[in-house]
């Protein structure tokens, strides 16, 4: 597949933006400035970016508790994201959602649902809505490996496949449901074969390789958009951080994590861009510098923003 330079550079920019966002958010969290918990997407940048770059703005994603990366991959603004995780009125959800529910409807979202698997039926319904209204749009619910063991997942995939709905089921295998490695809870190792029992294509790609993910996503999205029905897209990835930032990770070895850091998708993509003369080291350094500056400004914006007015505490319960 021939991917144009500007798309490739935008992929790089978004991957770096996710990385810097997560590192900055973790730093804020460790300094006690973020309440609640944050679940970072470190290591999975290529998966979200490869998939979301294959989508149009009016295609919709359903996120999870771990969706900082999905939002940025779909084009969300880090200013409004930091404002949200700091509980500010200027955040995407006006401080009502926080880290686990960040959802930027302006860039194409169905919400971020923090009950594992919950986005699946919702995305299936959105796809049904697209089809019934004759819209050539696609819905993409994200789940992890563990989410593919929920009833939500199996019910949803079954319904979408039996009705040929325009859905791409993004299954990001980061190998862990909280503390439990998928190998202890699931007999099969290749999760893409789950597609077979629903009569749809199941595709498995290297989730550290943004180009491989993008190419597979383009095919799956095209299939959905042209009315041929859903695809299960499994990206083999890894959660480099704990379940949440600061989580002690007693269930896995440091060596295991270090092995996966060697697969870090960002240096890998950087090398690809340079060795194929798509960008120079200077160009890429420039992007990183620009993103780091963007983060400083975004955090400043968030910190200076007001919290919601207590008089508005009960707004948005009913429409």
């Amino acid at each position: 597949m021939d991917i144009d330079k500007s798309t490739l550079l935008e992929m790089y920019r978004r991957m770096v933006r996710i990385r810097e966002f997560e590192l900055t958010a973790t730093d804020l969290f460790k300094r006690g400035q973020v309440k609640g918990a944050i679940h970072t997407y470190l290591g999975q940048e290529a998966s979200g970016v490869g998939i979301c770059m294959a989508l149009r703005k009016d295609d919709l994603i359903a996120g999870t508790h771990r969706s900082h990366g999905h939002n940025i991959a779909k084009g969300a603004n880090p200013k409004k994201m930091f404002a949200e995780i700091l509980g500010k009125e200027t955040g995407y959800c006006k401080g009502r959602g926080g880290s686990m529910h960040i959802a930027a409807f302006e860039t194409g979202s169905l919400g971020a649902l923090a009950v594992v698997g919950a986005g699946i039926p919702i995305a299936v319904g959105a796809a049904l809505g697209f089809k019934m209204q004759g819209q050539k749009r696609v819905a993409v619910p994200f789940t992890g490996d563990a989410g593919s063991n929920t009833g939500n997942w199996h019910e949803g995939v079954n319904m979408a496949s039996s009705w040929d709905l325009p859905v791409v089921f993004a299954l990001e295998n980061n190998h862990y449901g909280v503390s439990t490695n998928i190998k202890y809870t699931t007999k099969i190792e290749d999760l893409s074969i789950r597609a077979q029992s629903y009569g749809i294509p199941g595709v498995r790609v290297d989730g550290f390789d943004v180009i491989a993910v993008y190419e597979a996503a383009v095919d799956a999205v095209e299939r959905a958009r042209s009315g041929k029905g859903p695809t299960l897209l499994v990206t083999e990835s890894y959660r480099l951080d704990g379940h949440y930032a600061g989580e002690p990770q007693v269930y896995r070895t440091k060596e295991e994590v270090e092995e996966y850091w060697k697969k870090d998708p960002i240096p890998r993509f950087r090398k690809h861009l340079m060795s194929n003369n798509i960008a120079s080291e200077n160009d890429l350094d420039g992007i990183e510098k620009e993103i780091k500056k963007e983060m400083v400004e975004a955090v400043k914006f968030a910190k200076e923003s007001p919290q919601p007015d207590p008089d508005t505490a009960f707004d948005y319960i009913y429409a």
Partner: peptide, 27 residues
């Protein structure tokens, strides 16, 4: 299309209604 038999999937019946409602339908 408009009177739609579903699988026996109560959770997904409710969830699909939500998704369809989010994109402008009135399920």
């Amino acid at each position: 299309e408009r009177v739609r038999n579903t699988p026996i999937s109560e959770n997904t019946i409710a969830g699909a209604a939500t998704g369809a409602a989010l994109v402008g339908m009135r399920p």
